[in-house]
Design a protein around this nucleic acid. Structure first.
Lengths: 221, 221, 221, 221
DNA sequence: AATGAATGAGCATTCATTCAT
DNA sequence: GATGAATGAATGCTCATTCAT
């Protein structure tokens, strides 16, 4: 009669509520009520609220990590891939993974929530589980952008991660502010917008040191 | 003997704790204990926790808005400014404002927290108070990038906002992950990193429609 | 070992304290301490203080309403009852119901507290739940006092309700003021006092209009 | 410029709010805000909230007590007055006193609130200040109803007090329930309704003991 | 005579968690 | 595998009152 298991119902409800309201703002009471499940079931199945949060993440990240990891292995096997190919692979994996349950927006929003750090355990969890994967990716990017200073590459990658995570995280904020602009934009079209920025940013030449900080003398910071 | 007023002490404590732990995660009790102030003082001086959060914001944003607004007026009076000048003005104002109390990181982190939406009243507050300023800025950016499609410009601006906000928000996350890279990087040097990305992104040509979404056929989303 | 359930313990404690000190003046802390129960138990079992107040009422009123409703049905089935019979039925039901747990004084005091209106939700609750019962009773009284003007009957019924409720509500005030008079007066003897007043009042002829307000010309109200 | 004194403004605001919401439910904050007066002014002028409540009472009761006391003195000087005259005098004084500021309803509502006892100090205050007056009145009633048993008279007087206080206290409850019946009924017309009840009740013969409690054998109370 | 600031005690309510069944 | 009941700790907030000015 009832197809879904209790823990799946909890995960579904928790994910939706976490993404909409944040971790702290979502109580177990609300989750279990939405999942139509006993309050104690969360602690029974997951042990704690913290563990539930990690489980919500794992359900999204594990399939992506597997897909993306396999793709990187394939790329590594051949000659070192170009930057275009790397970026397209990343986007491809992100889009195809998340389509299994929930859209990319949920995936990204969770990622953003993990980074913007409330709930500190979460960051540790992600680092512990997915660091080798990210290291692989960064290695390949490094090979594909040999002329970029190491430091510059580091920051630009984080800027790019930030721009994507932030934009997708706040998509409905944006929709609220600019209904016309964002109305029917599907997530995959957004990916089209991301590509040129990523390429332009990573292909821009390294700044020479003299030009880095034209403002420095004016600030006391 | 005691130089600072009660409400300033509260604002200082609240700001530090909000930035470190988030709004919901920071209780009034912790704030007042840190500020060495009576618990009821928050409600006496600010009325509610929500109003306190807004006051923390206003203390950062109002000086910036004034500085940046005046600068934009000056730019508008002359001929339409180039993109470089606009971006440099923005960075300059951001750096010079926040230096008054607290660093740019706090400023950006607050901005990021407002966007990533927990505490929904906050977004409304920012929109109500600073919309005209942002509209002015976007107008000038539009004049400075005439060849960009309106839609592309919209998204790229948000990507850039995201990259900056996200990066500065998660600066200590990054420091935790890559001590070597980020160790002594002062905030104003980071501004030097931001500039080339911003220029490269906004100066990249608009994509032609055919190229926008090379992934669309592969995803069921 | 422990015979009574938690929610019964709460109801008992709450009832006693409400009657003695009023709703607002009785905190959940005091109730739970008296009931020897965890503070959160009230919200667990009843949801809110308001809901607890209603539950205290319901426990007294529901049995009375059932008893009185059934009695009225029986009276309606026969020929229209006389005023004596109606009044005696009412008193009988009031005495026999409340004797189950708590005395009539509690019952009446609660009724009086509901009427004298602090805690406005309560009046709505009583109206919503017991209106048909009261309507039935008033119908029968109307048939039993055909010579009374509708308006006069309305007011006199309220006067009578008031006299009973008020007297029983303030019984211990009276005992404090006139120990000799009220010392050992059992509640059921008081009922004997009520009867002649009720009958005399409802059987007094309607005033003729000229006599209604001999004071009107002297007051500017 | 400002006609009314601070303490009058406080008394006006407090009276209105007490009558509408009760003592405990009305905070000094609300009172002082309504009176457009500093929060500390209540404690400055009256010493405490309790003292403010008593002052609100005194402003209503003192003029009535003076008027009614004088009238009783005049009646005592002549031959013992009839019951009609006594009742009419009482009603007359009540109506004429209260008309000075605020209507009779406020007067009665305050009286009812004092009786139904939350705020226990208040009862003591009334007893201490007005007992001789009431004693005088009861003496005269006793002389005017020589055939009534002392005990019966005691109870019936309380029933009558209750009916009046209760009815006027809950006048707006009644208006809410029966708009048609109570719509334009001025308070002085209500006095016309009270009179026949009072006379009928006090003139009804004393019950004989056998008839007092026809219910006693059926109740276990 | 009046007031802005401050305070300690208390409020109803919600929280994640535990546990016997 | 699942749950109703219970709990201790903490939450934001309001209270009457005080006090220096």
């Amino acid at each position: 009669m009832e197809q879904t298991t209790t823990s799946e119902r909890i995960l579904d409800a928790a994910e939706a509520l976490f993404v909409e309201h944040g971790f702290t703002e979502t109580s177990l009471r609300v989750i279990t009520r939405k999942a139509d499940v006993n309050l104690a079931a969360v602690n029974y199945h997951f042990g704690s609220k913290t563990a539930l949060i990690q489980a919500v993440f794992a359900r999204h990240f594990d399939p992506f990590a597997e897909l993306f990891g396999a793709a990187l292995e394939r790329l590594k096997a051949d000659s070192p891939p170009s930057l275009d190919v790397l970026i397209d692979t990343l986007i491809h994996c992100a889009l195809n993974t998340s389509s299994s349950h929930g859209d990319l927006r949920v995936f990204m929003k969770l990622l953003g929530m993990a980074y913007t750090r409330h709930q500190p355990n979460l960051r540790e969890y992600l680092q512990d589980h997915y660091r080798p994967l990210f290291a692989d990716f960064i290695d390949l990017v490094t090979q594909a952008t040999p002329r970029l200073r190491r430091e510059d590459r580091f920051w630009r990658l984080h800027f790019l991660l930030g721009s994507i995570v932030f934009t997708l995280s706040s998509l409905d904020t944006l929709r609220g502010m600019h209904p016309g602009e964002t109305g029917h934009m599907p997530v995959r079209a957004l990916a089209g917008q991301v590509r040129p920025m990523v390429l332009a940013t990573l292909q821009a030449p390294s700044t020479d040191s003299a030009a880095i900080s034209p403002f420095s003398q004016e600030t006391s910071l």
